[in-house]
């Protein structure tokens, strides 16, 4: 299973990749996570790849991914060609306008919800993580939540967990 998170720096793309890979290892699987970003810390193009497998992983950056999570139009346009036929595209519908392609499309207003429900756009990545955990089932929900709680700044655990749960609920409705 190969997942690619993409967007711009500052959206928590690398964090989303890290949480996913770490949760997969918690599930007892093998996982790798790579990241690619420019020297600028915010605003530049950013992607993070996660590979999850029962076996040894040799391909760190997959030529073809099963799930593409797009958080910006620029990133979508750059990476949509790397999503395999029939693969899942999950995207923030306020930030990405997808073209007609042979993929399963799942849209969510992650950033808008993060702003409206939590007053913090930064948790959009947690909403997205909950959403894709629900629609794809590639990592267990328990491991995801535990990994989130272990890694977010102290005092923000509940907000992050709630954001994840919100995404998860929305995902289970569209499944």
């Amino acid at each position: 299973m190969n997942v690619r998170f993409c967007g711009f720096g500052g959206q928590g793309i690398v964090m989303a990749g890290y949480i996913t890979g770490s949760a997969a290892v918690r599930d007892g699987k093998k996982a790798t996570q790579t990241q690619s970003y420019g020297s600028e810390s915010r605003g530049g193009a950013c992607k993070s790849d996660v590979a999850i497998s029962e076996e040894e992983i040799y391909e760190l950056e997959s030529e073809e991914v099963d799930l593409l999570v797009a958080m910006s139009q620029q990133a979508y346009e750059r990476y949509i060609k790397t999503l395999r036929k029939g693969g899942i595209l999950a995207f923030d519908e306020d930030l990405v306008t997808p073209k007609k392609t042979a993929h399963k499309l799942y849209k969510i207003k992650a950033t808008d919800l993060a702003h409206k429900k939590f007053g913090r756009e930064i948790v959009a990545n947690m909403i997205m993580l909950g959403y894709i955990t629900s629609i794809s089932g590639f990592v267990s929900k328990d491991s995801m939540i535990q990994t989130i709680l272990d890694n977010v700044p102290k005092g923000t655990e509940k907000m992050n967990e709630d954001a994840f749960e919100l995404g998860h609920r929305l995902g289970s409705k569209v499944k």
Binding site: V25, K30, T32, Q33, T34
Partner: peptide, 9 residues
Amino acid sequence: GEIGHLREK
């Protein structure tokens, strides 16, 4: 930079 920034078990 690839292995340095790679995360694995």
